[in-house]
Nucleic acid binder design. Structure first.
Length: 607
RNA sequence: CGGGAUGUGGCUCAGCCCGGUAGAGCACUGCGUUCGGGACGCAGGGGUCGGAGGUUCAAAUCCUCUCAUCCCGACCA
């Protein structure tokens, strides 16, 4: 039979293969009547952010447990589209795809030191032999382990490996649907280089690839400087999609290119011409201020600006207790405090603990004659004759002067920037926007390669640790972010590139053989051109079809009913409402050029 | 983990205060009418009221415990 190349078996087999391939090509075309696409007319009660609501209503996802979601066909299609863009751009940038295990042995995490450090977010699992494993929240350990066994020489570098895979982080509070799930799909890439300079080139390459990826996804985003958090490392950028519902806040300069997460952002601080403490100034005096525990109420009491009050807060870290002092009109930035202390963890102890263990009254804390180590914001020494708590219940000190009444050699930038602060680069005005972090790139350095002994021999035969970088993209979050940025009161308005269906074809008159035949013909042609189309052939009233078409957000809606058929036209309406044209039924050319325009318009990459 | 709330047909919710027959709308099935922006009529199917315990002649309703989910704060793609 194997030799029967020209025979009937072979022909049948060939036809079978061709059918299979054709079916594969058509996988993104569907009849609505056959598709598992459970749309919801009513608002699901559990969802509060737009993307979550719309993804539930549009039949893209369903919740299985807190922070754990099933992707239905529509949702998966959107996800695959984002993945395709990611793959294309990662491969273009020279990265290679692989797939690492989701479940990882505890030993590796103990070796890197993160088994204890990562905390409760690490979902730990025990197998039948009582061996410890975890469900991977990230893959630095695994990739480093893989590479250390294979990479021996500088000749094998640079190397950039990535995967698209399910992660699990046991978030304290999962919320917002796919925006902060516990189980989520992430593209993570890891680069390995010979030295810091080469690692910088890898980092830059990823930065460019990320910009292309998010541009291709049709997103309005910013690449901003960021804190590197638990992953560690020296340098990092976040890619933030601007959206009202975002959990992150980004400070950006209105005059130059500076942009940073507010956790990281610095305001320029002009060291004013500070006059030395005036010895003649009256001594600080204690004033009874009963029930004045907030900065606002104290400011009102003394009839001064909140900026002339010192806000004093006790923090506890692995370095012990510490009193942090900032101007009263400022918020403390805990990330900066943590960095200034060089602490591993940081928290605000409960007022009861402060009272019991330190004997101090919250609401009346101050830096004068305190027993606690001080940490002072750099703006504090510039203030004169300020008010602060007297460390005595019901009393504040007035006329307190830096350098005379208290001082401290630990002075640092500790406050959160706010709109109107000055840019640290150019002095321009900073503005604050909310956004969703969809990508994050880190320069890791040798943190993991040293711990896991991933080394190579350089040109001089010296053994050196690999210099690493790591680069993540939340794939599901990117889909959600795209929806947050592209919707209206009727539903999703997908950017063309990630739209599960590019075209929604509505047959408004199933009973008419001619209309149906025209729709079927058009459907087949769109299919033949590889355009993802959802053909609404359901026996439903027109209103239902319009509502569903709007909800699922196909960029182009083609409508054919009896009236339009008799006039020889198809109605072509863009989902974003920007155009509503009548195309001739007899001539397809205008339709093809419209579709080509849509596709091209959306794939622009800003230089 | 702290603070707040909610669990009642598939979905959205009423009923709970003041204990006594489990309800509405949507969805689903059948028939008929309708048919360019989520139609209408008639007839149906579907619920151990999150779970356990208690009080009571009697519990969706009151009490205790428990589980789950959601919202506000500390983590992160």
């Amino acid at each position: 039979m194997l030799d029967n190349r020209g025979g009937t078996f072979y022909k049948a087999y060939t036809r079978c293969c061709i059918n299979f391939i054709t079916l594969r090509l058509k996988r993104n075309c569907m009849r609505f009547s056959r598709m598992y696409l459970p749309t919801l007319k009513e608002e699901p009660a559990e969802a509060e952010v737009i993307s979550h609501r719309l993804m539930l209503r549009a039949g893209m996802v369903r919740r299985l447990a807190a922070g754990i979601y099933s992707y239905l066909p529509m949702g998966l299609m959107a996800l695959r589209n984002v993945e395709a863009i990611i793959r294309q751009e990662m491969n273009r940038a020279g990265a290679q795809e692989l797939l690492l295990p989701a479940v990882q042995p505890a030993e590796l995490w103990q070796e890197s030191g993160r088994w204890d450090f990562y905390g409760k977010e690490l979902l730990r699992i025990t197998d039948r032999h009582q061996r410890n494993f975890c469900f991977g929240p990230t893959h630095e350990e695994v990739i480093t382990d893989l590479v250390r066994h294979e990479v021996r020489s500088y000749r094998q570098l640079p190397l950039n490996l990535y995967q698209i895979q399910t992660k699990f982080r046991d978030e304290i509070r999962p919320r917002f649907g796919l925006m902060r799930g516990r189980e989520f799909i992430m593209k993570d890439a890891y680069s390995f280089d010979v030295d810091d300079a080469a690692a910088g080139i890898s980092y830059q390459g990823m930065r460019e690839a990320y910009s292309r990826i998010f541009s291709l996804c049709g997103l309005d985003f910013r690449a901003v400087e960021a804190d590197s958090g638990a992953i560690g490392g020296s340098f990092s950028h976040e890619f933030v999609v601007l959206a009202e519902s975002g959990e992150d806040a980004v400070a950006s300069c209105q005059a130059c290119a500076y942009a940073a997460n507010v956790e990281k952002a610095e305001g320029r601080f002009a060291a004013a011409d500070k006059c030395a403490a005036d010895a003649a100034a009256p001594a600080a005096a204690a004033v009874a201020t009963p029930d004045r525990e907030s900065v606002e109420s104290v400011a009102a009491f003394f009839k001064v600006d909140p900026g002339a009050i010192l806000k004093s807060m006790i923090f506890e870290s692995d370095r012990g207790f510490c009193l942090v002092v900032v101007p009263g009109d400022r918020e403390v930035n805990e990330i900066k405090v943590k960095a200034a202390l060089g602490a591993e963890w940081l928290e605000i102890p409960a007022p009861s603990r402060i009272a019991d263990e330190l004997g101090l009254p919250v609401g009346y804390l101050g830096p004068v004659d305190t027993v606690l180590p001080l940490l002072v914001d750099r703006q504090v020494p510039e203030l004169e004759a300020v008010v602060c708590g007297a460390n005595r219940h019901g009393f504040h000190l007035q006329g307190v002067i830096w350098g005379r009444d208290f001082s401290c050699n630990k002075v640092a930038d500790l406050v959160q920037v706010r709109a109107g602060d000055r840019c640290p680069r150019c002095g321009g005005l900073l503005q604050i926007d909310r956004g969703i972090e969809v990508g994050h790139i880190f320069k890791l350095g040798t943190k993991y390669s040293e711990k896991l002994k991933a080394t190579f021999l350089d040109q001089e035969g010296q053994e050196r640790p690999l210099v690493m970088g790591c680069y993540g993209i939340g794939v599901g979050r990117t889909v959600a972010a795209a929806i947050e940025q592209h919707y209206d009161e009727n539903g999703i308005c997908f950017p063309y590139a990630i739209a599960p269906f590019k075209v929604a074809l509505l047959n408004l008159d199933l009973k008419s053989a001619e209309v149906t035949a025209a729709c079927e013909a058009l459907y087949a042609e769109l299919e033949g051109r590889g355009i993802a189309v959802l053909y609404d052939d359901r026996n439903e009233r027109p209103g239902v079809k319009f509502k569903d078409a709007d909800l699922i957000g196909a960029p182009l809606r083609l409508t054919l009913g009896r009236k339009s058929f008799e006039r020889g036209i198809i109605e072509a309406r863009l989902r974003d409402g920007s155009s509503n044209a009548e195309l001739p039924l007899a001539d397809r050319a205008p339709l093809w050029s419209l579709l080509a325009e849509l596709a091209a318009d959306d794939s622009r990459i800003p230089s």
